[in-house]
Write a protein that binds this DNA or RNA. Structure first.
Lengths: 199, 199
DNA sequence: TTGCAAACAGACCGGTTGGTCTGTTAGTGT
DNA sequence: ACACTAACAGACCAACCGGTCTGTTTGCAA
């Protein structure tokens, strides 16, 4: 076991339990009492590590959800065709998906949908995260364009936004319908579209 | 003015004010006290018309949000090419979009994202609604396929899911980034893809 | 060993929540 | 004119919310 009094692991534990609660219930509906109960940590401890619920929420978002999200979206930049790389990544995502994960949806999107219009902090975080993601993909497409691997009519910024939107939309539909097949079908269409962009 | 004691209009008014609150705050965060205040209706009146908050939520969802949603998605079945019709509809949607509307996002999706995993009623309603929508579009594509207007490789069910997912994803991205241009760019990509399906 | 701050423990609090209950009022059928 | 019920009005309530505050314990530095 961890030593008695290990502030760093207490904080971490609190973050993870909070994340679990917020994953399922959302930000507002995740109650501190439940979190404290589940984590077997006192209120004093929580408020020692976090100024308030908002700060806890931000920490969960930054240190758990965004981290996970960007890791999931880490398209391996193979040395071959980038479009192929993206398509392969999509296929893998499609294969790894389970009904349970799909049901939960994307935590970042769930929290963002809930909070973006109510809280500046969440809004800024969401905006920055998606900007990061989109520009990452856009850069990939730009170099592919320079290498003559995709058609010259392709607008990298548009297509990268399109990819992100469609994948997130697919997850949403999957969540609502609890249907793995629908999710996979959408991703297959996306891969089809992307291959049409190849030279 | 309406006569004193018009139960039907009281109900309607309550529904509309609740919808306004839920649009902005979501279901759980929309408080009855605020709704009552805003609507200038007593708690007794509300609980005369609705059994509880859940029933009120369902009514708002069914009678306001779903109705609006399906009306928005009512792609005019022109007698010419269905793909063209969808593309034109997308263009119109793109043109009509404002920053304010985009910021609010799609109420159905907002509520669905919040409630689907917590409440059976909302889950069923969401599922039925999207099934309705997807099959509507799938039928359109099927007939187009029979008429030889789209390629034979097109799977109507997949493409219809894809369209829905991408448009919803575009709205999400637009909401998060508060950026009209991103929204429009995504829809343009979708239109591009759809035209590649034509024979 | 003692001092002292960091790390907790948990009682307590005011405000808000959805929901109930006891009225009162208005329309309507007889 | 009267009765009866639908349509309200609003005081009241327990449960819960996030947050505070006062204590205690622990580890570590001097």
């Amino acid at each position: 076991m961890s030593p008695p009094r290990d502030p760093e692991s207490t904080r971490r534990h609190l973050l993870e339990v909070s994340a679990e609660e917020m994953r399922f219930k959302g930000y507002k509906a995740a109650s501190l009492a439940d979190i404290l109960n589940k984590a077997k940590v006192s209120k004093g401890a929580l408020y020692h590590h976090f100024a308030n619920k908002q700060e806890l929420g931000y920490a969960v978002f930054d240190e758990i959800f965004v981290r996970e999200f960007l890791a999931d979206w880490d398209v391996p930049m193979s040395n071959t065709d980038p479009i192929d790389a993206v398509c392969q990544w999509i296929t893998e995502m499609s294969e790894q998906a389970t009904r349970e994960k799909l049901q939960q949806g994307c935590p970042v999107c769930n929290i963002a949908t809930e909070m973006v219009s109510l809280d500046e902090g969440f809004r800024d975080r969401t905006q920055i995260m998606f900007d990061t993601l989109r520009s990452r993909i856009a850069v990939m497409l730009s170099t592919a364009k320079l290498n003559g691997q995709v058609k010259q009519v392709v607008v990298p910024e548009s297509v990268s936004s399109f990819i992100v939107a469609t994948v997130q939309g697919a997850m949403m539909q999957g969540k609502y319908g609890r249907d793995l097949e629908t999710f996979k079908a959408i991703l297959r269409c996306l891969a089809d579209y992307l291959t049409t962009l190849k030279t």
